[in-house]
């Protein structure tokens, strides 16, 4: 069981780079990289809200539960 972060898929769909997203969301590139590579242990609602706002998507588009 794992929560999969599909940030790279959404970035590809929006044709946006990771650094561009980091700038728009106002979080560090290293933190965003932690999220993208699935190393993150937790995610703040505020971060999720900003990412959804910038990528114009729903939380479910970024996070996915797989058994």
């Amino acid at each position: 069981m794992a929560i999969i972060v599909n940030l790279d898929v959404m970035l590809a769909k929006r044709k946006m780079s990771l650094s561009e997203l980091a700038e728009k969301v106002d979080i560090t590139l290293s933190n965003l990289s932690i999220l993208k590579t699935g190393k993150a242990k937790a995610m703040r609602f505020s971060t999720l809200e900003k990412i959804c706002e910038v990528l114009e998507c729903q939380p479910g588009d970024i996070l996915e539960f797989r058994e």
């Binding site: 190393k39 993150a40 242990k41 937790a42």
Partner: peptide, 8 residues
């Protein structure tokens, strides 16, 4: 501390 460091 580790959890805090890996919280985005």
């Amino acid at each position: 501390q580790e959890e805090n460091a890996l919280t985005v």
